[in-house]
Computed example of a mutant assay.
Amino acid sequence: MKRIVLFLATNLAVMLVMSVVLSLLGANRFLTANGLDLGSLMVFSLVVGFTGSIISLLMSKPMAKWSTGARVIGTPSSSTELWLLDTVKRLSDRAGIAMPEVAVYDGEPNAFATGAFKNSALVAVSTGLLQSMTKDEVEAVLGHEIAHVANGDMVTLTLIQGVVNTFVVFLARVVGFLIDKAVFRNNDDRGPGIGYMVTVFVCEIVFGILASIIVAWFSRYREFRADAGSARLLGSPQPMVKALARLGGLSSDESLPQNFKSFGISGGSSGLASLFASHPPIEERIAALRGTR
């Protein structure tokens, strides 16, 4: 809840600063005089920017269960399920959070954590992960996911998406109005013209791409932080190093739906695609744990 309040306050503060800057530059008076109400646009941008992100966050657990076919372990039906519950309970106690729901889903080696609140989260592991890794390695992966929950990463990532969405919506319309007014329309016409609609459409695509780079950067940062969190929970970085090395040879994110891939433990790209990758390359994560990055 503190993170939600903090990021909402941050977003409102940034929008206020933007308004002040536009006023000092004279843009506020120019735009308002020519038919653009910045106050209403700011409110509109906030609503559009955050509504989808907040709804997505609140629905993340049921959507994750539905889209992956994850089965929440109530009463364990095997020694593996009993071990999973005991391990998650031990790690969550160390992290100072309530025990998350624990689920298993069919798929290639991977795991994820999600949920709107850190004391009512979901941690899920794939059957491929359980079959291909040792218990020490699985424990390290669970530590990584518990660290995500303890850090509030699901909430923070979602709210950062809301912040950048707000900027995209706001700036696209300001630019669209200016270009429409200067290039496509005469000053007597106060209604939005075709130039406005086309410019807003193009700007939302361009600004959206730039926003995606920002969100992806934070997603990669939180993976390093969760790896370090797993090392702290287990008392050593070695189990996480071994788990990542194993994932480097086995991992595949094809078992996770597109909208949940950033929540998985595996991933990473190289070259230009790395700007949009939700995960750093495995070798960089191992180097960070070893202190050589």
Rank of each mutant, 00 (worst) to 15 (best):
T87E: 10
K89V: 00
R90S: 10
R90G: 09
L91T: 01
L91W: 01
S92Y: 02
S92T: 01
S92F: 03
D93R: 09
A95F: 03
I97K: 00
A98N: 07
M99F: 00
M99N: 03
M99H: 01
P100H: 02
V102C: 01
Y105L: 00
D106A: 13
G107C: 07
E108Y: 06
P109S: 08
A111T: 04
A111H: 09
F112Q: 01
T114D: 01
G115T: 04
A116T: 13
F117K: 15
F117S: 15
F117M: 13
K118R: 12
N119E: 05
V125I: 03
S126Y: 06
S126G: 04
T127H: 07
L129E: 07
L129F: 06
L130Y: 06
L130R: 10
L130V: 08
Q131A: 15
Q131L: 11
S132I: 13
M133S: 15
M133I: 14
M133W: 13
M133H: 15
K135N: 14
K135I: 09
K135G: 07
D136A: 13
E137A: 15
E139I: 03
E139G: 11
A140Q: 11
A140H: 10
V141R: 08
V141A: 14
L142S: 06
L142Q: 08
L142W: 08
G143N: 05
E145D: 06
I146T: 04
A147W: 06
A147P: 10
A150N: 05
N151A: 13
N151H: 11
D153H: 10
M154P: 05
V155I: 12
L157S: 15
L157Y: 13
L159G: 14
L159T: 10
L159K: 11
L159C: 09
I160E: 13
V163F: 15
V168S: 05
V169E: 10
L171P: 04
L171Y: 00
L171A: 10
L171Q: 03
V175T: 01
V175A: 09
F177L: 13
F177D: 10
F177W: 12
I179F: 07
I179L: 13
D180I: 09
K181H: 09
K181Q: 08
R185C: 05
N186C: 03
N187C: 04
N187I: 12
D188Y: 09
R190I: 08
G191I: 02
G191S: 12
G191V: 03
G191D: 10
P192N: 12
P192H: 09
I194E: 14
I194C: 06
I194G: 14
G195Y: 02
G195M: 09
Y196T: 10
M197K: 12
T199W: 02
T199L: 02
V200C: 07
V200E: 08
C203K: 00
E204C: 08
E204D: 07
I205H: 04
V206K: 00
G208H: 02
